[in-house]
Design a protein around this nucleic acid. Sequence first.
DNA 1: TATGAATGAGGGTTCATTCAT
DNA 2: TATGAATGAACCCTCATTCAT
Lengths: 217, 217, 217, 217
Amino acid sequence: MSRKPVIPGVDRRQQILDAALEIFAEQGFEAATNKAIAERAVVNQGLIYFYFASKADVYFATSAYYTEQVIAQLDAVFAQVHEASPAEGLAQLLRGIMLLLSTPPASHLLRIMYQVAGSRTPAGELSNAEERRAISGLARHLTQRFREYLEARISRKQFNALNPTLVSYMLTRTLIATVTMRGQGGMAQPDLNSLAETMAALYAYGFLPRSEQSHPE
Amino acid sequence: MSRKPVIPGVDRRQQILDAALEIFAEQGFEAATNKAIAERAVVNQGLIYFYFASKADVYFATSAYYTEQVIAQLDAVFAQVHEASPAEGLAQLLRGIMLLLSTPPASHLLRIMYQVAGSRTPAGELSNAEERRAISGLARHLTQRFREYLEARISRKQFNALNPTLVSYMLTRTLIATVTMRGQGGMAQPDLNSLAETMAALYAYGFLPRSEQSHPE
Amino acid sequence: MSRKPVIPGVDRRQQILDAALEIFAEQGFEAATNKAIAERAVVNQGLIYFYFASKADVYFATSAYYTEQVIAQLDAVFAQVHEASPAEGLAQLLRGIMLLLSTPPASHLLRIMYQVAGSRTPAGELSNAEERRAISGLARHLTQRFREYLEARISRKQFNALNPTLVSYMLTRTLIATVTMRGQGGMAQPDLNSLAETMAALYAYGFLPRSEQSHPE
Amino acid sequence: MSRKPVIPGVDRRQQILDAALEIFAEQGFEAATNKAIAERAVVNQGLIYFYFASKADVYFATSAYYTEQVIAQLDAVFAQVHEASPAEGLAQLLRGIMLLLSTPPASHLLRIMYQVAGSRTPAGELSNAEERRAISGLARHLTQRFREYLEARISRKQFNALNPTLVSYMLTRTLIATVTMRGQGGMAQPDLNSLAETMAALYAYGFLPRSEQSHPE
DNA sequence: TATGAATGAGGGTTCATTCAT
DNA sequence: TATGAATGAACCCTCATTCAT
C-alpha cells in the first residue's frame, strides 16, 4: 500500500550492490536469491529489475564495481612499500595485501569470485557486457603488480632471477587462497600477522640454510 | 513396469558417486541437479534416494569417498620422496603433488570442495553424519604430511627453522589454489612442470641472493 | 526532473491511442504491455494513467475511437455504389469494403477486436463505460448497412428474396474473416481483387448454372 | 502431503490436453494460466512440465491433437453428402459442417486457433516441433476438401466454373467465421439451421433472379 | 501535465523429494 | 531394488499500477 518514501541521498542501486556483495559472498551465486538480496537491501524485489537486467547482471555489476574499489586499495598498498630493505619491504607488502584481502569488501569479493570461478559462469541478460571480463580483473591486476615489483628488484640484483611471470602468478594464487580459505578445514585459523611474517621469511630466504655462517633469524 | 535386473558387478551406488563427482565439479552443488546426476549415472532419479538421504548427502558421501582415495594417493607421493638432496626432494615432492591434484579425481574433488567451502555448507539430511567433517580432511591431511615433512628436515638441520605449522598451512593452500585456479583470470595457464620447478627454487632458496654479505633484518 | 513542454498541436492522448492500436494489433491485448505502448507513443509509461483508467480502458478507448473512424469510411463506400447494374454494383461494393478493411487502421482494428472477441472481454476500470458496447459497433454497423442495401434491392426485385437479416449477418462475417484471416493457414494469400471478383460472381449468380429449365424450390 | 492415487485408465496427459483446450478457448493463450489449466485438469501444476516442455508446447500439442480429431469428423461429413441434387447436397454439407464446427471440441479449437492467429505465435520450447505446422491444418484441410468438392461438380457441369481455389478459400473462411463469431457484436445469435439454409440458397442461386435474359459472365 | 522510481501480485518454470508399483 | 509419475515449494522475472515530484 504505502510507497517507501524516496530518501534523497540514498542510492537504491548502490544499496542493491552492497546487499548483493554480502549475499553472494555468503551463499554463492546459485544459492543466493533475489528475495534475500532485496531484503538485505531493504528494497522491493521487483526493483532489482529496474536497475539490472537479471540476477546474473547484478552479479557482474557487483563484481565489477567492487573489483575497481579493491584494485585502487591494492595500488595504494603497493605504493606505500618503503625500501628500507628488500626483506622488510617484502614483509610489509605481504602484510598489507593480506590485511586488505581479508577485510570486506575485498574478502567478500574474493569469495563470490572464486565460488563462481569453480563452476560455470552465470548466464543471463546483462545490461553491460563489459563487466563480464572485468571479473577476473582483480587477480590479473595483482599478478601484474607483483610482476612489476619482482622485475624491478631482479634488475637491481636485489632478488634472485626467478621467472617473474610464474612467481607473480604463484604469489597471487597463494595470497588469495590463504586468505579465502582461512579457517576452513576445521583447523584453528592462524593469525594473519604471523602468517605474513612467516611467508615473508620463507620467500626471502627459502628453506635451505645459507652456508655454515649465514643464519637467518 | 520392468524391473531393471541387477547386473552383477555393477554397483549403482558407485555409479552415482562417480557421476556426482563430475556433475558437482562441473556445475557446483547448487546448480547441479539430481536429474543431471542420475542421467550421467544412467540411473533412475528416484534411485538416488534409495542410496542417499538427500542431495546434500550425495555431496558428502562423494566428498568423503574421494577424499579417502586422494589421501591414499597423496601418501604414496610423500612415500616416494627420495632423499638425494633436500632441494631435489622438495622439487620432486611439489611436482608429484601438483600433478596428482590437477588430475581427476583429485581435481574434481578440489573443485567441489572449494566451491562449497566459500558458501554455506549444504544443508540436508545425511545418512552418515560422520562424513560431514571428513570433507575438509584432504586439506587437513596434506597439511599434516607437510608438517611432518618439514619437522623432520628442520630437526635434521636440513631446513631453516621456520614455524612448521604455519608453513605447512601455507604450502597446502598454495598448492591447492595454484592447481584449482589455474587458467582462470584470463591468463595463459602456465605449464605445470615449470610452475613446480619455479616453486621449488623459490621455496628452497628464497628471493634474496646468498651473497656473503647478506644480513637479513 | 524536467517537465516535457507541451508541444502545441501534439496530442499525447492521441499518440497513445495510435500506438495502442498498433501494439494491440501486433501482440493482442494480453501480450501487449503498457511499456511497449508508451515506447511506441514516445511517452512516459505513467502518463497512460493520466489519460486512461487502466490498460483495459486504453483498449476500449482505442477500439471506440477507431470504430468511429472506420464506420465513417464504410459509409462513404456504401454511398459511392453507383447503380449501373446490380451485379456491377455488388462487385464494386465488395471490392471497396475489402480494400478498406484490409488497410490500416481498419485492419488493425479488426485484429484487436477479434483476438479479444474470442476470449473474455478485458476487465478493468473504464473512464467511459459507454465505450464498452461501442466495440462491436463496427460489425453491427456493417451488418446494418448490408441489410439496408439488400432490402432496397429486394424490394425493387433486383435481388432474390433471401432473408436480409441472415444474409447481411453472413456477409459481414465473411468479409471480416476473409480479410482478417488472409494469409493464414500457410496458403498463398490470394489477391484481394480476384477474391472480390469471385465473391461478387458467386453472390450474384450462385453455383448452379442458369439453364432454362432449372427452377429451384 | 498426500499423493493423489494413480487412477488406472486415467491418462493425466490427456486430462491436461482436455483442460487446456477449454481454458485456452475461454481465455486465449496469453491470459490462460498454467494454474487454471492444472486446476481444470485436477492435476498438479508442476505435472504439466512432466508431459510438456512449456506452456507453448501444451498449446501446440492441444491444437495438433484436436485438429486431427476434427479433421476426421470433417471427412466424415464430406463422405456423407448424398447426391440427391446439387442444391440439396450443398445445403446438407453446409449444415453438417456448421453443426460440427459449432460444437466442442471443434468450436473450442477454432477459438484457440483464431485468437492466436491474430497475434504472434506463442514462443517457447516444444517437445515436438512438427506440431507447430499442424496448427493451421484444419483450415487447410477444409479448404482442400471444398476444392475437391467444387472441382468434381464443376467438371460434371453441375456447378458454374468459378475459380475453385478462391471459392474454397472463401467458403472456409466464411464457415469458420460465421461459427466462431456467432453471438458477437451484441446481436441475437441466429439459429444455425436457418443460417445454413440461407447460405445454401444464396450459394446455390445467388442474389440475381433467374430471369430469362440474365447471362452470367 | 509529465516523469522516473517504486510496488506487489502473480506467472511460468525448476527441482528436490516422495509414493505406488 | 528400481522405476516413472506426482507433488509442492520456491525461484526468477514481468508488469499493471501508483506515488512523489
